Amino acid sequence: MPTPYSLAHLTALTHNPAQMVDLAARTGYSYAGLRLLPVAPGALAYPLMDNPALLAETLARMEDTGVGIFDLELIRLNADFNAQDYLAFFEVGERLGARAVLIAGDDREFSRLVENYARLCEAMQPYGLSADLEFMPWTAVPDLTTALRVVGQADQVNGGILIDALHFDRSDSRVEDIAKIPTQWLHYAQICDGPAQRPTTDEGLIYAARNARLLPGEGAIDLRRIWQSLPAELPISIEIPNEQRVAQVGVEAWARSALVAAKATLGPA
Rank of each mutant, 00 (worst) to 15 (best):
residue 92 V to P: 04
residue 70 F to L: 13
residue 9 H to L: 01
residue 245 R to P: 07
residue 49 M to Q: 15
residue 153 Q to S: 10
residue 25 A to M: 03
residue 18 A to Y: 06
residue 83 A to Y: 00
residue 24 A to I: 08
residue 157 V to G: 03
residue 125 Q to R: 08
residue 59 L to H: 02
residue 39 V to G: 11
residue 134 E to D: 07
residue 153 Q to M: 12
residue 194 G to V: 07
residue 121 C to S: 05
residue 180 K to C: 08
residue 160 G to I: 01
residue 75 I to G: 07
residue 178 I to T: 03
residue 217 G to P: 08
residue 18 A to P: 06
residue 215 L to E: 13
residue 67 V to E: 03
residue 3 T to I: 14
residue 210 R to K: 15
residue 109 E to P: 02
residue 126 P to Y: 02
residue 194 G to W: 11
residue 59 L to A: 00
residue 97 G to R: 03
residue 42 G to L: 14
residue 132 D to P: 01
residue 134 E to P: 03
residue 130 S to A: 14
residue 164 D to W: 07
residue 86 Y to S: 01
residue 125 Q to N: 01
residue 269 A to N: 02
residue 62 M to K: 07
residue 182 P to R: 09
residue 129 L to H: 01
residue 181 I to P: 13
residue 45 A to L: 06
residue 187 H to C: 03
residue 209 A to C: 10
residue 25 A to C: 12
residue 170 R to C: 09
residue 89 F to M: 00
residue 91 E to W: 01
residue 122 E to R: 15
residue 65 T to V: 09
residue 124 M to K: 00
residue 37 L to R: 14
residue 7 L to F: 05
residue 256 R to M: 06
residue 203 E to Q: 10
residue 222 D to K: 15
residue 157 V to W: 05
residue 111 S to H: 11
residue 160 G to L: 01
residue 214 L to N: 13
residue 267 G to C: 08
residue 134 E to M: 08
residue 49 M to S: 04
residue 266 L to G: 05
residue 196 A to K: 12
residue 254 W to T: 04
residue 20 M to S: 10
residue 64 D to K: 14
residue 90 F to M: 06
residue 205 L to A: 08
residue 120 L to M: 12
residue 238 I to L: 09
residue 40 A to D: 13
residue 255 A to N: 04
residue 73 E to S: 04
residue 101 V to P: 05
residue 262 A to R: 06
residue 134 E to R: 04
residue 12 A to K: 12
residue 117 Y to W: 07
residue 141 V to W: 03
residue 36 L to I: 08
residue 177 D to C: 14
residue 163 I to D: 05
residue 22 D to Y: 01
residue 167 H to L: 11
residue 176 E to Y: 10
residue 10 L to A: 09
residue 217 G to W: 14
residue 121 C to R: 01
residue 113 L to A: 08
residue 155 D to C: 06
residue 243 E to H: 14
residue 210 R to V: 02
residue 57 E to C: 04
residue 106 D to W: 10
residue 6 S to W: 03
residue 123 A to S: 07
residue 49 M to E: 14
residue 251 V to T: 15
residue 165 A to L: 06
residue 164 D to F: 12
residue 94 E to G: 05
residue 192 C to K: 11
residue 132 D to H: 00
residue 146 T to K: 14
residue 183 T to N: 12
residue 96 L to A: 07
residue 114 V to Q: 09
residue 177 D to Q: 12
